[in-house]
């Protein structure tokens, strides 16, 4: 995160956006391809989308999947990661599988998941969750491993029970990393949301994209992608802001 966000940085960012827009416009006009609309065409399509109802209905449908999937991923991944980090010996057996999950492109697993679970809301949410879970588990595990053993000694010396050690030391110490886990998981969940709809179940945003593609309406396709990017960016920025706010009270930054 660029901390030096003064008026100068804002001007620079705006200038950067302008350069991209102009280059896009020039490329779009020069090209005769149907698949590369110009910047202005895309903006017109975006305006039409934002004022119409289809985009919002699609966003609503997709985000329900996102929220449900992400909530499930967090509810499952954080306790699992914490447990694996706390008891590393049993965790050793899970290691190769977890690493595999982290490396394998989840996209490749989507068809299998849908064959098993069908194409309903729960199955889509499960796909979203499966995108987010591995990174959440790994981050949560690292978070609890990094807890300063001297603090745990102090807690034990003053008579903390195992439950109190979690509440007073492990969880507060892990909190900043758990927030990072959630933010990275959310980014992956957005990916999962788009992928499941594009690949297999044409509802929501994915359905909208396929629909526009079928009609060779390239400006609208690009406009929808911009909307998805904007949502992802907004979620990330919001996540970072929340992290900073909580870290401020929760952690020592020496």
């Amino acid at each position: 995160m660029s901390a030096g966000a003064g008026p100068r940085a804002a001007v620079l960012r705006l200038a950067g956006g302008l350069v991209i827009a102009v280059a896009w416009e020039v490329a779009g006009r020069a090209s005769t391809s149907l698949l590369l609309p110009s910047f202005l065409e895309t903006m017109r399509a975006l305006a039409a989308l934002l004022t119409g109802g289809a985009l919002w209905r699609a966003l609503w449908a997709s985000n329900q999947t996102l929220i449900a999937g992400f909530a499930a991923a967090t509810a499952l991944g954080i306790p699992l990661g914490l447990a694996l980090g706390r008891w590393p010996n049993p965790a050793r057996w899970a290691d190769p599988y977890l690493n595999l999950l982290l490396v394998v492109p989840t996209t490749a697993l989507v068809p299998i998941l849908l064959i098993v679970g069908g194409a309903g809301f729960a199955a889509r949410a499960a796909v979203v969750a499966s995108f987010a879970v591995p990174v959440i588990v790994q981050c949560a595990r690292a978070a609890v491993r990094q807890v300063d053993p001297r603090l745990l000694d102090a807690a034990r010396a003053f008579g903390a029970t195992p439950a109190q050690q979690w509440r007073t030391v492990r969880l507060p110490a892990a909190l900043p990393s758990l927030l990072v886990a959630a933010r990275l998981g959310l980014a992956r969940a957005v990916e999962g949301m788009v992928v499941v709809e594009l690949l297999l179940v044409a509802v929501g945003i994915g359905g909208l994209l396929l629909d526009f593609q079928g009609r060779f309406d390239a400006p609208s396709v690009y406009a929808v992608m911009l909307v998805v990017m904007a949502e992802a960016a907004t979620l990330t920025v919001a996540g970072r802001a929340l992290e900073r706010r909580l870290s401020h009270v929760a952690v020592d930054r020496d």
Partner: peptide
């Protein structure tokens, strides 16, 4: 009660809360 070489204070807790830590646990 033990006093540690490297202090071992809770970095996210205020001076008051650190001092009261043992009492909180009780």
């Amino acid at each position: 009660a033990l006093v540690f070489q490297d202090f071992a204070l809770l970095p996210w807790a205020t001076v008051t809360d650190n001092i009261a830590f043992g009492l909180e646990l009780r």
